[in-house]
Write a protein that binds this DNA or RNA. Structure first.
Length: 735
DNA sequence: CTGGTCATTTTTTTT
DNA sequence: AAATGACCAG
């Protein structure tokens, strides 16, 4: 049954209510951490529907599948049954929404309807290939750097031509050459990378008036989640869709903008009001998640950012416990202390494992933690959504499936042509390639005609023929109509099974008795069951049946677009380990953040630019604000980095936390005396007035917590500002 | 053609 | 430390 207006508005604060009841026109919700953003969003949509808006006119775009799923679920709970699923609101990630539209309007978008989506690894392969073709030396320019430049260009909506037109200098000249070679490869393979999904969608909306008006009319109310993370392409998509009606609601928090490196443009949210002069702005500053000291610590930190709209953060949940700042000897010690912290939460405070998380800046830090948690017998999962699909055997199986769905996908074809090895080696492949170039053939077509080629051993011809026949057999099996229900998924699972068996992947691992290969076999089994459970998202025009090939394509698409955050399963009874980026949008009773060191957080690569430094600070802010009740921040005095053990420098962010809202604990060795250091820091909070026998009266400007001791910057009435070590300076508090 | 050893390179975050 | 790539012996 449909919720009534009153039911929808019950239990909301005035600010939340203002956002929920706003109907037409632009709306900007500035949602601080823990301010009930999802509640506002879902209630707003329910409110629109209760007010007579047909639910299928609503489009909500998010960044992760998990966010989309959660939003969809919470909304479904408020809607009558018939308004969920097809006919209900569309809730999707930017990327999957675009991927689907591009298939639906494939012809208008000038695309093969079953185009492949290349993940990071495929993209890397293709860029390497492009670099070779463009004769760019990979010793001076890594594929990673060039790939990043291309990605950047695409996010700014510069295609290869447009980039070439504005390129200047040697480096950009090189990038231009690689970019156009890369584009040729993608086009020849009927493949898109992640950035293309957005870029091509923009192009479609711009060039095809019919598609544009059709989508504008269909989606009458837009909602964009995590708006601070939108890049220029996403910005254009959102505003083009909203252009005819202006009903656009964006939700976000500039202080949580952490994807600048991916082209996210923080000015999208900072300048929303200029863009829509009639926009209503609703700030949500009250935090319903964390206790006082945690909110204070976070607020104190984020105030150090200069480019920022100031916003008061507060909570009514009581002061709670102070976050602990722990200094450890090395990373093993740090991991052990994290394990102690987690166990303490469980045993002393009754916190369940799933309410705890360990956060870090870079994935590499998870390894030591894993060991420590295993020895401490604390159950954990690492949130790496792609981890499963990154495994070699899975990538191989998926490459077979991709070639079946899209025979032009040569990056995948090359991957599998001799995996498992079937006697089609380098030399043979070279010959076939030459033959293909000669006859203007696609690689697969050339393979098909291997018999016509001169200079191949009969053994090679045999191997090739068998391989091609196998692919054709699988392809033929996929040219059938299947029901659009779970029964259809059975067919999909059977197809996956057929591929795994006939490709020889299965027998290659079956032959081996090693534990590792047995695990690979089990993983392949898991892929089959993933297929069996896959249901294609509802489409606008659909019959009861679809071709198995199209179901396969949808499956491959969903696999390509999984994110790390998607793997965070709130049902699981385990501690979650993840990067700070992945943690955005989540909350836990107890959080441990590790590696608070210069070079790690803030990361080295952000050191030389003020804006990147501010982004690192926001990242730290995001981490702190994940904690509801208890927070431990730690750093190691010594850390092994790429095989080298080195002393570390404390993160500047620790010194920026208000001293009075944290507790310092030095476990690194010589630090028995650190207990009264903490007292010192508490004794002379920022703002307090102090007397020094030599310098006279002064005001404490800031407190810095160091491994060696706390120090304070004090501005004296005599005019000078001095930094004093609290342990030694003869300071006396006056007021 | 395959599977091994040795040298080189990596240096963030992710849809 | 770990992963990738080049090179070489069977």
């Amino acid at each position: 049954m449909a919720a009534t207006h009153e039911a929808i508005l019950a239990n909301l604060t005035n600010a939340q209510r203002a956002a929920v009841t706003h109907r037409d026109g632009a709306l900007l919700v500035l949602a601080g951490p823990g301010s009930g953003k999802t509640t506002v969003v879902t209630h707003r949509m329910a409110h629109l529907i209760a007010g007579g808006v047909p639910s299928w006119q609503i489009l909500a775009l998010t960044f992760t599948n998990k966010a989309a799923g959660e939003m969809g679920e919470r909304m479904a709970a408020m809607l009558p049954r018939r308004l969920t699923g097809r006919g209900g609101p569309t809730v999707a990630t930017f990327h999957s929404f675009c991927a689907r539209q591009l298939r639906q309007f494939a012809e208008a978008a000038d695309l093969a309807p079953r185009y492949s989506i290349y993940d990071e690894a495929d993209r890397r392969d293709a860029i390497k290939q492009a670099m070779k073709q463009a004769e760019v030396d990979s010793t001076n320019f890594t594929p990673g750097a060039i790939g990043a430049a291309i990605s950047n260009a695409k996010n700014r909506l510069l295609d290869a031509q447009a980039f070439a037109a504005q390129a200047s200098g040697f480096r950009e000249g090189l990038i231009t050459r690689v970019y156009s070679a890369y584009e040729k490869i993608l086009r020849a393979n009927d493949a898109l990378d992640f950035d293309d999904l957005l870029l091509r969608m923009v192009r479609l909306l711009r060039t095809d008036e019919q598609v544009r008006t059709q989508l504008q009319q269909r989606y009458h109310y837009l909602l964009i989640d995590e708006y601070q993370d939108t890049n220029h392409a996403q910005f254009v998509i959102a505003h083009t869709l909203a252009a005819s009606h202006g009903n656009i609601c964006v939700v976000g928090d500039p202080d949580q903008s952490i994807y600048g490196w991916r082209g996210a443009d923080i000015s999208n949210i900072l300048e929303f009001e200029q863009q829509y002069s009639m926009a209503k702005v609703v700030p949500l500053g009250q935090n319903f998640r964390s206790t006082g000291h945690i909110v204070d610590a976070a607020a104190g930190l984020i105030e150090c950012n200069k480019r920022r709209k100031s916003k008061r953060l507060y909570t009514e949940l009581g002061a709670g416990e102070r976050p602990a700042v722990v200094i450890c000897r090395d990373e093993q010690h740090e991991a052990a202390l994290v394990a102690d912290f987690l166990r303490g939460q469980s045993e002393q405070h009754g916190v369940v494992w799933k309410e705890m998380a360990v956060l870090y800046r870079v994935n590499a830090l998870s390894r030591v933690l894993e060991e420590a948690l295993r020895t401490a017998e604390i159950p954990y999962v690492i949130a790496r959504g792609t981890a499963f699909y990154d495994r070699k055997e899975i990538k191989d199986a998926l490459a077979y499936l991709r070639v079946i769905a899209n025979p032009n996908d040569e990056v995948s074809l090359r991957r599998i042509i001799n995996t498992p090895s079937r006697g089609i080696g380098k030399t043979t492949l070279k010959k076939v390639e030459l033959f293909a170039i000669d006859g203007q053939l696609r690689l697969l077509e050339a393979l098909r005609r291997a018999g016509d080629m001169t200079g191949l051993t009969s053994r090679a011809v045999n191997a090739i023929t068998k391989f091609v026949q196998m692919l054709e057999g699988c392809h033929n099996a996929a040219v059938v109509e299947v029901p659009r229900t779970l029964a259809g998924s059975k067919h999909l699972a059977r197809l996956v099974e057929q591929v795994i068996r006939e490709s020889g992947l299965e027998s290659a691992y079956q032959r081996s008795p090693t534990e590792e290969d047995q695990q690979r076999l089990a993983n392949l089994e898991e892929l089959i069951s993933a297929a069996a459970q896959f249901v294609a998202p509802p489409a606008d025009e659909q019959g009861p049946e679809l071709r198995l090939l199209d179901l396969l394509t949808a499956f491959l698409e969903s696999v390509a677009l999984v994110s790390d955050a998607d793997l965070v399963d709130p049902q699981r009874g385990t501690v979650t380990l993840m990067t700070l980026h992945t943690a955005k949008g989540l909350e836990f009773s107890a959080v441990a953040m590790i590696g608070l060191e210069e070079g790690l957080l803030p990361h080295v690569r952000a050191a030389d630019s003020e804006s990147e430094l501010e982004e690192e600070r926001r990242l730290c802010f995001v981490g702190i604000t994940r904690a509801k009740r208890r927070l431990q921040l730690s750093r190691a005095a010594v850390r092994t980095h790429r095989g080298i053990r080195e002393p570390t420098i404390e993160s500047r962010f620790l010194g920026e936390l208000p001293a009075e809202s944290i507790v310092l604990s030095d476990q690194a060795g010589e630090g028995v005396r650190l207990d009264h250091e903490r007292d010192n820091a508490v004794e002379f909070p920022v703002g307090s007035i102090v007397r020094h026998p030599k310098f006279g009266l002064g005001r404490v400007e800031s407190i810095m917590l160091r491994a060696v001791g706390a120090s304070a910057r004090v501005a004296f009435s005599t005019g000078g500002t001095k930094t004093l070590i609290l342990d030694f300076a003869p300071l006396e508090r006056v007021e």
